[in-house]
Design a protein around this nucleic acid. Structure first.
Lengths: 153, 153
DNA sequence: TATATCCCTTACGTAAACGTAAGAGGGTTC
DNA sequence: GAACCCTCTTACGTTTACGTAAGGGATATA
C-alpha cells in the first residue's frame, strides 16, 4: 500500500561538486521526482523507453534543463491521454536545427485522433451515467417498497 | 485480427431433442452469443468466473431464460462500468425467496461509488480535451508560421 | 465418406505503465 | 563506525477481460 515516492530529504546534503561550478542546473533523480510529482520508477521507466536520457556521473543520473523540458512534454502527453509511444514518436522527430514541420504535423495528427477518442469516451461515460442513474432510481424504489414507512436515510 | 464471433449458422440444424418437448427455451452458446453480441469466449469466461452457470447436456452448454436474464445483468453491469467482480458480488446476494434487501443495498452502494468514479473520469477527460485543444491551436499556429502563405489545408 | 458446423478444454498471450522487492554501492552525519 | 539517505540494477508482479491458438469430439448434410 506504499505507493508514495521516496520522500527524499532536501537533497541539499548530497552535492559532489566541491567546485560549485555553474552546474547547479543539473539535478538528480530524487529532486526531479519531487519537482514533478512522479516516482523514481517512472523516471527510470521513461528513460528505459527512450523518452529521456539524462547524463551520468558515474552511475547517477543527472537531469539537465533540457531533460526537464522533455519531462514536461512527457507529462503533458500523459495528461492529454497520449501513450508513451505516441510521445516518443513525436519527440523523436525533434530537430534542433530546423522548422520541425514534420514533428508538428505528427503532433497535430495524433492530437486530432486523440481528440476524437476522448469525445467517444465521454459519450460512453455519459451513457453509463444515464443508465446508472436510472438504475439507481429503480433500486431505490424497490428498496422503498420493501420497507415499512421508516426513515429513508 | 479476427475478433469476430464464430458466425454460427442458424443453429436450427442441430437439435437433438426429437421429442420436441417444451424446452425450446434452452439455447446453446452460439445462439446466445449472437443474441447478445458477445463472443463464445466471453460467455465461457463469465461462467469460469462464476457469473453464470448454464446446465449441460453432455458437455454442451444450455442456457435457460434465467441464464439469459443473468447475462443481461452482466452486460448492464459492464455497460455502467462495473467490474465482473462487482457484478458477481451483487448477483451472489440474490435470493429467490426473499426481499433481497441486502442485494439492493449493495447494488446501490456500488452504484454510488461508480457514479462518482464516472464523474471524476469525465472531469479528467474534460481537462484533457481542454489542454489538447489549446495545444492544437498552438501547434497550428506554429505550423502556420513555418509556412509561406500557402494553402492551409 | 468427406466436409461443414458446432461444441469442448487447456493454456499461453496481450496491453500500459509502472509497483515493488531484493541486494548492493557511495557519501554524510552523529 | 553505525545509521541514514540517496542512488543503482535486475526482474518478477499487477490489473482486466477476454483473444487466440491447438487439438479433439459430435452431428448432419452432400
Amino acid at each position: 500500500m506504499t505507493m508514495m515516492l521516496d520522500r527524499a530529504g532536501e537533497a541539499v546534503a548530497n552535492n559532489n561538486e566541491m567546485s560549485m561550478g555553474a552546474d547547479e542546473e543539473f539535478v538528480r533523480i530524487g529532486e526531479m521526482a519531487r519537482k514533478y510529482g512522479v516516482t523514481l520508477r517512472a523516471l527510470r521507466f521513461y528513460e528505459d523507453k527512450g523518452l529521456i536520457a539524462p547524463k551520468r556521473e558515474g552511475s547517477t543520473r543527472l537531469y539537465s534543463p533540457r531533460d526537464n523540458a522533455r519531462l514536461k512534454l512527457i507529462l503533458l502527453g500523459r495528461k492529454i491521454g497520449f501513450s508513451l509511444r505516441d510521445v516518443k514518436q513525436i519527440m523523436d522527430l525533434y530537430d534542433p536545427s530546423g522548422p520541425n514541420t514534420k514533428q508538428l504535423r505528427l503532433a497535430l495528427e495524433k492530437s486530432e485522433k486523440q481528440m476524437s477518442r476522448l469525445q467517444k469516451q465521454r459519450a460512453v461515460i455519459d451513457e453509463a451515467v444515464a443508465e446508472l442513474s436510472s438504475m439507481m432510481t429503480t433500486v431505490r424504489d424497490q428498496l422503498a417498497e420493501r420497507m415499512p414507512a421508516k426513515a429513508q436515510r
